[in-house]
């Protein structure tokens, strides 16, 4: 099995790479962080008997992506699975954010993800099933004031994946969307979850479980995977409540949590 992973030097990317390594899959990893890529490659090769190839790339830059694809083509590497993990968010309300950073959310979470998915489908291993995984978020299920751009970008992935799944079924391609709430991947995410208090705690899913089940779901041909009972319940209930009401509730909750989070951030730095 050959797996292509974007955002592989980050917390979820590393956990997924470990999971693939433990299953004996060979991997091609990319991330904007070149030093981080080198380290995770080392870690994987020391732990598992697998081949890991890496190439740093800015996925929002088409030239950078072309260069990376050229590496794949020179070596004739072909894939059975692509894990679109790379994504970003910047904390703060719409007007408090830097304009270019806002645009970057869409450029990376959506435009770059389309670019990679398209390129990898063209480089799939022939005669075998192919899996695509999109990392969306529980945020994709609701309108999220104060996280509006991020949530909408994740909603885009969910909608797109649902349609693409139907379109590519005949070609033996499975499309899975992962919709996690919080996961503790870094010190920052830990602070964010703590700031959300009770709801942060009950919707936090264990990273290693999410990684294992994501691959299981992809191989089993599932369409959406929302980790955690509470998150599944929230996403189910969300379907019956008027969206404007959800927006009002979410606004109150995030307003409070973000203030706390930002304060913790100031103390930390």
């Amino acid at each position: 099995m050959n797996v292509f992973i974007t955002g592989a030097a980050g917390g979820l990317g590393r956990a997924l790479a470990n999971e693939c390594g433990s299953r004996g899959y060979n991997m091609f990893l990319t991330d904007i962080n070149e030093a981080g890529l080198f380290r995770i490659k080392q870690g994987l090769e020391r732990q598992f008997n697998v081949t890991v190839t890496t190439k740093a790339c800015d996925l929002t830059n088409p030239h950078s992506v072309d260069k990376m694809l050229a590496v794949l083509d020179t070596h004739g590497i072909r894939f059975d699975m692509v894990l679109n993990v790379a994504g970003c968010d910047f904390e703060g309300g719409f007007l408090e954010r830097d304009r270019e950073k806002l645009v970057k959310i869409v450029l990376l979470n959506n435009a770059a993800t389309l670019r990679i998915t398209h390129a990898l489908l063209k480089r799939r291993r022939q005669g075998r099933p192919f899996s695509i995984v999109f990392v969306s978020s529980l945020a994709s299920m609701f309108p999220m004031p104060l996280k509006a751009t991020y949530a909408a970008s994740k909603r885009f992935l969910l909608e797109f994946a649902t349609a693409l799944r139907q379109e590519l079924r005949k070609d033996d391609v499975n499309v899975l969307t992962l919709c996690p709430a919080g996961m503790v991947t870094t010190e920052e995410t830990l602070c964010g979850i703590k700031a959300q208090g009770f709801w942060g705690n009950v919707t936090t899913a264990p990273l290693e479980d999410v990684a294992r089940r994501t691959i299981d779901c992809a191989l089993a041909g599932k369409g959406v995977y929302t980790p955690g009972l509470m998150s599944r319940l929230l996403s189910f209930l969300g379907k019956f409540v008027p969206r404007s009401f959800v927006a009002a509730v979410v606004y109150r909750r995030w307003h409070h949590a973000q203030r706390k989070w930002m304060r913790a951030d100031i103390i930390r730095s």
Binding site: G43, V184, T185
Partner: peptide, 11 residues
């Protein structure tokens, strides 16, 4: 640690 978290090497 309370959760499974990894280092740069994925350990």
């Amino acid at each position: 640690r309370s959760w499974y978290m990894t280092t740069e090497e994925g350990y």
